[in-house]
Design a protein around this nucleic acid. Structure first.
Lengths: 113, 113
DNA sequence: CAAATATTTGAACGTTCAATCAACTGTTCA
DNA sequence: TGAACAGTTGATTGAACGTTCAAATATTTG
């Protein structure tokens, strides 16, 4: 396992428009971040304003630990950024696209077709 | 567990812009579909042209069964649609947003910031 | 320095989920 | 009718993942 799209390329013409194998994996990894409701909620929080870990946990009624774990994941995906401010860590969105991607998804969700 | 965002609403002002709890779950469910490379690949195939299950499997070098299972998932999310044509089933995208969401994600992925 | 606060980290646990395999349904055609 | 082909489906298995709990790491303050 590992290729798959190489075969699409062999198909010729149509392949030109196809994202590369790597792009598809990256794409999946990106969307994976938005594919968990906890992370979506965290990102929504940060869309409103920057928050400390504890604030997010309070707001979402979650364990600080659980939030911290997810923040680590989001940090790894470069979607959020944490800045130490004394005893606390202030988190903020680290990517302009986050808001737009979520907005786009929301307009989709809110269309009863 | 089950609320969480209700609390954000209590926070007042900022909450107005927040998606509802249900919207967040739907949002996560939507993006979950794009959060798997196999599904991304299948959707990419169908972006090029409609295909039969076997064609998709060939193109992606995957088992027909595996593809069929994922097509069922995508069908459940109303992202693709299958039409029986004789012995075969032709699949096509069932949602205008699919292409746009993926395109948007791709432009993100292809930005080395 | 010790206590208190804020956050991170790692291990453990349970759940979700995609791929595989085998069996089954439907369709064509000889 | 029966063989061949196209797809679906269900059970199983293994990996990935999110939460919890306990312990560890700052950082501030008395």
């Amino acid at each position: 396992m590992g290729e798959g799209v190489e075969d699409i390329k062999k198909a010729g013409k149509a392949a030109a428009a196809l994202p590369s194998e790597d792009e598809m994996y990256e794409l999946a990894d990106l969307f994976k971040m938005f594919g968990d409701s906890t992370r979506v909620k965290i990102l929504s929080c940060l869309q409103i304003r920057n928050m400390y870990v504890g604030e997010i946990a309070d707001t979402l009624n979650m364990t600080i630990s659980a939030v911290s774990h997810q923040l680590r994941v989001l940090r790894g995906a470069k979607l959020v950024k944490g800045t130490k401010e004394g005893k606390e860590v202030r988190y903020s969105l680290d990517d302009d696209h986050v808001t737009k991607i979520m907005e786009y998804g929301l307009t989709h969700v809110n269309e009863d077709k």
